[in-house]
Design a protein around this nucleic acid. Structure first.
Lengths: 100, 100
DNA sequence: GTACTATTCAACCAAATGGTTAACTCTAGC
DNA sequence: GCTAGAGTTAACCATTTGGTTGAATAGTAC
């Protein structure tokens, strides 16, 4: 069976279950940013954003690169693939009618 | 912007972040089942499964229908659509190369 | 109405989550 | 070495989570 490592899906879906984290992924999708740049738009503290980034990093959804005094954060979009594949299985049921 | 109601995505992704809940969705995808039938394969208590079902129901991922003494649980697969659409946005970045 | 079966609810518990502020570490520049 | 800036870690807190057991409810069958 296409296992997709259940634990991996756990961490991906958990990472995606928070709106701030989803927004962060959006933010860095087209342009890599520093941690400070990422944090700026949000009302929460920098420490809170740092924690969100750690969750995303643990799920392997982002990667960091030190560049001088900053860290550059970039999206690891390929990690989303198993999640989308998991969901794709259910497409065939989207239109199913239940006797209502 | 295709809002997809952030709160809706929260509840969907949260529901999917637990392996038991994902397994339950799999179980009922092709054949609707009663609560008892759903619970049987799992080692956790029936009450625990009942809680999982409540999470899935809150996310609108399942629906129940009372049939005599039983409740029939069926998948509401269409609810997954916004999640998959959210993920689809990132497909274009799957193959992006970061200067490594 | 009594009994049985199916399922939920209540009370409880330990661990995880998401936030805070304050202290710490790392790097660059002087 | 000292200082300033960028970011993480620590300690703390309230809430949520996922599990348990045991009592309660709902429907069927007698």
């Amino acid at each position: 069976m296409v296992n997709s490592s259940s634990a991996r899906l756990d961490s991906i879906f958990h990472a995606l279950s928070d709106p701030t984290r989803r927004a962060i992924l959006r933010d860095i999708a087209t342009k890599e940013k520093t941690v400070g740049e990422i944090a700026r738009p949000y009302r929460v503290s920098l420490a809170a954003v740092s924690k969100h980034l750690k969750v995303l990093e643990t799920a392997d959804l982002i990667a960091r690169e030190r560049r001088g005094n900053f860290q550059i954060v970039r999206l690891n979009a390929a990690t989303l693939k198993p999640a989308e594949q998991w969901l794709a299985y259910y497409e065939k049921f989207w239109d199913r009618r239940f006797d209502g």
